[in-house]
Amino acid sequence: MEARTDEWLKFWNENQKSLFQAWAEGKPSPFAMHGEPPPGTEVMGDLMKRSMEDWAALAKDAWSKGGKFDPAAMQKLFDPAEWKRAGSHFDMGLEKLTEGPTYATLWDLDKKMLNTQKLWVERARDVEHYWEVMQGAWNRALERFMKQVNDPKAAPIASGRAMLDLWLATANGALLEMHRSKEFLEAQRRMTRSSTEYRLAEREIAEAFCEMHHIPTRTEMDEIQKVVTELRRELRAMNKQGTRHEARPAPAARAKRGRK
């Protein structure tokens, strides 16, 4: 009887080994007699291979500390909760099997990055245009200065400082005219706006990473501050109301005064 049981166990072990080996190598099941491997065999094989590696690593870890048995590691090895822990290869494999792509958020971060890149280009274009307008004013200033320096009817320039003062006054006038011009104001507005939009897009990306790494985002912090500000406002109003009530005489005192 014992010999028969041993034989059966040996047979069962061999079959299991062949099955796992086949899965690990992505081959069809040794029990499959013929035809193509069933769908999912490859994925299952990959999963099996990685799970065996994980098990081997865990087992190695359990015996690693000076060759002694580590009960904590063994507990970890056999605790089903451990198998579900995020971050392990085994778990990631399972996740991939159970979760399909979420179409609503597909390429979300990539889209944000693309948008930021687009805004960066717009910002660069607006900054360039702003400097172009500025350069126009400097060119006008230089033209005027040269004209004044070469004016034979004007009083002579007798020192370096007088020349510098003339240049500075001329440049100041040209720059002020430019600062008041529609062209400059619009160029400045566009530069400020595109820099602002770029900064906001940059924030969206930063916030995506914050969310990924469990860090509060700027938007969340702003929301909290808003609540704090509103609470402070309410507290101030309540304190004010309290002070007003304190300042008013009590109803009994008012009645007494009325009878007099």
Binding site: L176, R180, E186, R193, T196, E197, D222
Partner: peptide, 27 residues
């Protein structure tokens, strides 16, 4: 004079939305 009242010109060169977005971006 040219340099008088420039701050008003600057403020009015922006739209209301420009101001809102500027504050949103910088707090």
């Amino acid at each position: 004079p040219l340099h008088h009242g420039l701050i008003g010109l600057w403020a009015r060169s922006m739209t209301g939305e420009d101001v809102d977005r500027l504050v949103e971006a910088n707090g």
